[in-house]
């Protein structure tokens, strides 16, 4: 029996690179990469736009151990093309999920993405659809697919739809989960609808605290690699199934959310409805106090 050891150095998840996140997440020295950068499987499309390629196309996929248990891992690099899904990038994740199904191994997806890479939009969009299908096929075989959200680029666009197929989501305050980004809403609907430069508005509408409170994420953690590691170990003890009962429960959960909060103009109103004493103070609360205040939040257990 090999010793299970984690990297214990403090590391901000938000600041870390994809490779640093994987190293800090898995048991020390246990990760092996598939199609690593030495193979130079670059995007065949970026040169059309005179854009630089990256040898891993902005995603690291492979296999490691988490607390001794084998697990398949994908980590997006938000600092390359905003972590966006292109053809090669997406296909690496599709392959990993199909492998998970075949090998009966759980999957961790470390999201850090603005969504579909526009320079290869059609390939990226189809990759999202293929990945969502592969997630559900794996989950129907009982595989856990756990999403971790706390990166620089957030989890936007098609990435947020993939997150919605995961069996469990772990999020930090810095994690943002949303389909349309702030700039996209402002461009399409005007600054009166959404002022993308109002950072407080962005965080309270799309950020980790709000998502945890409405049950869009299951676990709220500090911006620390070790906190993500501990939460991932716990998440893999759940079951990932996705059947009629789960979707019926999700239908009821999401319908209830519209009923309870559908008229709210701002996140603060939702937090008030949730019974939070001084909702305007919520964004400033440290994790411990926030979690105590979030006691009566909406949850998604067995309904995701």
């Amino acid at each position: 029996m090999s010793q299970v050891a984690a990297n214990t150095v403090s590391l901000s998840w938000y600041e870390a690179s994809a490779r640093q996140r994987i190293d800090a997440l898995v048991d020390a020295g246990s990760f092996s990469e598939f199609i690593g950068p030495e193979l130079r499987e670059i995007s065949p499309h970026l040169s059309i736009f005179d854009l630089p390629e990256q040898f891993d196309d902005g995603i690291v996929v492979g296999r490691g151990r988490l607390d001794g248990t084998p697990v398949l891992i994908a980590a997006q690099e938000g600092r390359f093309m905003g972590g966006a899904f292109g053809e090669v990038h997406g296909a690496k994740l599709t392959g990993l999920l199909r492998a998970a199904h075949a090998l009966k191994e759980d999957v961790l997806i470390l999201f850090d993405t603005g969504g579909v890479r526009l320079q290869e939009a059609n390939a990226g969009e189809l990759a999202i659809a293929e990945i969502m299908r592969a997630v559900i096929e794996a989950r129907r075989a009982g595989i856990n697919v756990v999403g971790l959200i706390g990166g620089r680029a957030g989890c936007y666009g098609g990435g947020s739809l993939i997150a919605g197929t995961c069996s469990r989501l772990i999020i930090s305050e810095q994690g943002r989960l949303s389909v349309s980004g702030p700039e996209v809403i402002e461009t399409n609907r005007g600054i009166e609808e959404f002022d993308s430069r109002d950072r407080a508005l962005v965080w309270r509408t799309m950020g980790g605290k709000h998502r945890y409170l409405i049950g869009a994420a299951d676990v709220f953690v500090d911006d620390e690699a070790l906190a993500f590691r501990r939460a991932a170990i716990d998440a893999l003890k759940m079951h990932g199934r996705c059947d009629v009962a789960v979707l019926e429960a999700e239908q009821a959960r999401l319908a209830r959310r519209l009923q309870r909060f559908g008229e709210a103009e701002d996140a603060v109103e939702i937090w008030q409805t949730l019974g939070i004493g001084s909702p305007t103070d919520l964004p400033a609360l440290p994790t411990g106090a926030f979690l105590r205040a979030a006691n009566d939040r909406e949850t998604a257990d067995d309904a995701r």
């Binding site: 969502m132 993939i162 919605g164 949303s178 389909v179 809403i185 609808e193 869009a216 999700e250 559908g262």
Partner: peptide
């Protein structure tokens, strides 16, 4: 693309339909 839809967690609703 609206503040209300994103406030309420649109990604979950779209994923739910796909699922």
């Amino acid at each position: 693309m609206s503040k209300r839809d994103e406030l309420l967690g649109l990604s979950e609703y779209l994923s739910h339909l796909a699922k």
